[in-house]
Amino acid sequence: MIWSLRISGGKAVDNRSESSRVSSLSSFGQAANGDLYAVSLEGRLYKLSN
């Protein structure tokens, strides 16, 4: 499962579960342009897209 939150005034707000799913997620990564990736221990690399 992927959850998201953001920081406002030093506190976490908008904590919520996202619809994206990555099985056996082991890490996020970012490209130089800010694109967000996720990797799975099952061997796949994912890119988050709109």
Partner: peptide, 22 residues
């Protein structure tokens, strides 16, 4: 908790701190 990252480039739900758990 297995990861924390941020992505500001997009304006949809990904423009937040993103955490993930498995």
């Amino acid at each position: 908790s297995i990861g924390v990252t941020r992505c500001r480039r997009r304006v949809d739900v990904t423009s937040t701190a993103t955490t993930a758990r498995a």
